[in-house]
């Protein structure tokens, strides 16, 4: 369903973030993308929906090539890919409902969205989705009044309201405590199963990845160095991805992982900022 062909990204600074990455993901498969900071995980995800423009290569989504699409066509393609962010990226001063309904923006004309007059189907689905993620009591609250875990649930609901074929998930648990992290990961994998969605999930925590993913792709310095089942993540493989370290604890934690023991590694928020600092980054978003 999603096929990346030799996807390459070179930033204006000259950094080669992705080196000809090729992956194919069938419908309904949940793929965990692991690798050290700066390996290109966030860049890879953003090259798929072109929040970051790839330098070379192709992205095929359901037979449609995305890298050559013009503005309007790109917007229509983006509707099919829901994105979930590391720091939630909710619009803090809007209500929970407005944040969720913003998942429908690609389907609704400007005036309707300005007046917050979304079609009845969209509104009822928004209520249903909020119910599914367990937030029906917080519909009219402002997003900045929620806790971290609740905010990420809103982020998930927003992505689901796009009615997507694919979820792009960027470090969904990086800002959450271990228990909430597990709940959020479980929620994401459950909704993928319910709706038959494929997903690419950037994840820092190897134990979480082993626990929840069907397939793991290991990225190092912009190259795929591992692609296989989570059980195949041996000490050798992890060393290949992350470098030399004692991996025995991480592997044991595997299936019966003690979430409390595996405190999430701090993820530099700087990475996200870097995309925003690219000159004209928002101007691209506005086109």
């Amino acid at each position: 369903m999603l096929r990346l062909e030799a996807l390459t990204k070179r930033y204006k600074t000259g950094d080669l973030a992705l080196k000809a990455v090729s992956i194919e993901i069938p419908a309904g498969q949940v793929v965990g993308l692991i690798g050290p900071s700066g390996a290109g995980k966030s860049t890879l995800i953003r090259c798929i929906n072109r929040l970051v423009e790839p330098s070379a290569g192709c992205v095929w989504l359901k037979g449609l090539e995305l890298t050559g699409l013009r503005r309007g066509a790109l917007r229509r393609a983006r509707r099919r890919m829901g994105m979930i962010f590391q720091e939630y990226a909710l619009v803090e001063r809007l209500t929970v409902m407005e944040n969720v309904l913003s998942g429908q923006l690609g389907y609704v004309g400007f005036w309707r969205s300005l007046l917050r007059r979304f079609p009845p189907a969209a509104v009822s689905q928004a209520f249903a989705t909020l119910d599914r993620v367990g937030l029906s009591a917080h519909v009219d609250k402002r997003a900045d009044a929620l806790s971290g875990g609740q905010r990420q649930r809103v982020g998930i609901a927003r992505a689901l309201l796009q009615n997507p074929d694919l979820l792009l998930v960027d470090e969904p648990t990086a800002s959450l405590d271990p228990k909430t992290s597990r709940q959020i990961m479980r929620l994401i994998t459950e909704v993928c199963e319910e709706r038959g969605l494929a997903a690419i999930i950037n994840i820092h925590d190897v134990a979480l990845a082993r626990r929840f993913m069907q397939r793991i792709v290991g990225l190092r310095a912009g190259e795929v160095v591992y692609d296989g089942p989570p059980e195949g993540l041996s000490a050798d493989v992890l060393t290949q991805i992350y470098g030399e370290e004692d991996w025995s604890g991480t592997i044991q934690a595997g299936d019966e992982m003690a979430a409390e023991a595996g405190a999430p590694a701090p993820v530099p928020a700087r990475e996200a900022v870097r995309f925003a600092r690219e000159p004209g980054a928002l101007a691209v978003a506005l086109k």
């Binding site: 409902m97 309904l101 509104v123 009822s124 689905q125 249903a128 009615n163």
Partner: peptide, 15 residues
């Protein structure tokens, strides 16, 4: 790709 109405949920919402 329009959604179907989810039965049992309100179909209008006002900020």
């Amino acid at each position: 790709a329009a959604l179907a109405v989810a039965p049992g949920y309100p179909t209008t919402w006002k900020r």
